[in-house]
Design a protein around this nucleic acid. Structure first.
Length: 453
RNA sequence: UCCAGAGUAGCUCAAUGGUAGAGCAGCCGGCUGUUAACCGGCGGGUUGCAGGUUCGAGCCCUGCCUCUGGAGCCA
């Protein structure tokens, strides 16, 4: 039976007759024998295999080169040389799949930009193998975090007719040919439909029944965004809590990010060491800081005062009523506070209709969590639970209440204060790994003009 | 979409307007324990595309394409 390399390397004693399968990372030949390093993706480290020239199956060593797949049987022994604790003395080796000389991955390091062009092969590199192992572990940690707190996982629809205002441009979904706007009532669903930009509105309906819920699924934005932190398809986590206000919302967001950092630190130690070494030297220190220190919380009004009083020249103006620009958010989180920062209570004019109006009648109970290096990683709010106020908000945002009748019903039938947020899973991964481009933390990135693979 | 930079061998990069090169990878050979092994040899190019200037363009000019970074939008 096959043993994964991660288990082989964790062995505490020599073992006989192990079966290993994987891909050759590199080979070093000596007279009469070769060193083969095999990787099967179960961990970052390779297993060194010593193959004698007379080992059965090794009659044609030229075929067992970088990239080839192989099955090896042998005995695990303590390695006499430094560099690895264990090595496998092969008793039999078999070429499973040969590799063409055009195999693009080399033993030496490649740039992430080049590896992006071969997205089908890049998980075989150290960096991307590590990234995607960590992505998997963290997806699990997300569920564990919410399930441990009695949150119910809700699968909100991917195809939707409702627009979660303010979330961005939507991709149209249609089965029509020709002019798709001529008779939308004849379309597959009998109306215009889109790929979801957020499961929030549907999530609210479940929170107003099951109390605490979360979604975790693909989300689509048709924005022509070309940046290191935007993708047209990404995974979003959206908790929603009934009987919860903005304070509780901010508490959960902060607790969540800390928990994810802690999980990575405890469960992905080997993988994190690679990021610290080759991607972001400050990563261990940053994770420690995030875990240990409370996040700074500052009302929008105070944030504006800090920015105005900073003496800094900003490219874009800072004034009450204007959105904070990237440079302002960067200043707050990277320079002024040098810590993750939650900005809350934004002017009502710059936020969507569903956010709850504060008693000052000027601001809404919104919050954005900003982290150094990435900017906004969480955006959330307490929702407007008062029917009259919600209707007024919709009027001032020029929305038709008829389009949101089911959403308004939540306020008619046993309304409750509730709050939630959206968190970009890829941005979280960027923060936890130091990887600076969102295209490198998602297996096959969808960005404007690019849907290869 | 806007601004800036870049595009030369499979990869990373050189090359005053004057014969396109190196390292690595690949292939062949050597080496008794290697660690991104080492040593010797060999092959490898429509210089992103299309025009233009010039006796002569990888280099200068124009347009386009792609990539990278920044901005806007946001998660």
């Amino acid at each position: 039976m096959r043993t994964l390399i991660k288990h082989v390397l964790a062995s505490t004693e020599p073992k006989e007759a192990l079966a290993i399968k994987g891909w050759v990372r590199t080979r070093r030949d000596s007279k009469g024998f070769s060193f083969l390093e095999l990787n099967d993706g179960s961990c970052l480290a390779n297993l060194q295999i010593v193959v004698d020239a007379t080992t059965p199956g090794f009659e044609n060593p030229a075929t067992l080169t970088t990239g080839a797949s192989a099955a090896v049987e042998g005995n695990l022994v303590a390695s006499p040389a430094s560099g690895q604790k264990w090595e496998l003395r092969a008793t039999h080796i078999e070429l499973v799949g040969a590799v063409d000389p055009t195999y693009p991955l080399q033993k030496k390091g490649h740039t992430p930009e080049f590896l992006r062009t071969i997205a089908h092969l890049r998980p075989r590199s150290n960096l991307f193998g590590t990234i995607f192992r960590l992505r998997s572990r963290l997806a699990y940690a997300v569920h564990q975090f919410f399930q441990d707190r009695d949150f119910v996982y809700v699968h909100t629809p991917i195809i939707t007719a409702s627009d979660c205002e303010g979330a961005g441009e939507m991709f149209r979904v249609t089965a029509l040919k020709g002019n798709i706007d001529e008779k939308p009532q004849t379309d597959f669903f009998g109306k215009r439909t889109y790929l979801t930009v957020s499961g929030q509105l549907e999530g609210e309906t479940f929170a107003c029944a099951l109390s605490n819920i979360y979604t975790f699924g693909p989300t689509f934005r048709a924005e022509n965004s070309n940046t290191t932190r935007h993708a047209a398809e990404f995974w979003m986590i959206e908790p929603e809590m009934a009987f919860c206000d903005l304070q509780g919302d901010m508490d959960l967001g902060e607790e969540f990010i800390k928990a994810m950092a802690r999980y990575a630190q405890e469960h992905c130690t080997e993988d994190l060491s690679l990021f610290a070494k080759f991607v972001d030297k400050d990563l261990p220190e940053r994770l420690k800081f995030v875990i240990e220190r409370p996040f700074v919380r500052v009302p929008y009004t105070d944030a504006v005062k800090i920015l105005c009083g900073s003496g800094r020249k900003f490219e874009f103006p800072v004034k009450y009523g204007l959105n904070l620009q990237s440079e302002h958010e960067r200043f707050l989180t990277e320079e002024h506070f040098k810590s993750p920062v939650t900005v809350f209570n934004y002017p009502r004019e710059i936020k969507p209709f569903y956010m709850r109006l504060n008693d000052d009648h000027k601001t809404v109970a919104a919050m954005d969590m900003l982290v150094p290096g990435i900017g906004e990683v969480v955006g959330g709010a307490q929702r407007e639970e008062r029917l009259d106020q919600l209707l007024e908000n919709m009027r001032s945002h020029k929305l038709n209440p008829e389009d949101y009748s089911w959403y308004l019903d939540l306020r008619r039938f046993g309304t409750v204060p509730h709050a939630g947020f959206g968190l970009g899973f890829e941005r979280l991964l960027m923060f936890l790994t130091g990887v600076s481009n969102i295209r490198d933390v998602i297996p096959f990135a969808r960005t404007p003009g690019n849907a290869d693979f």
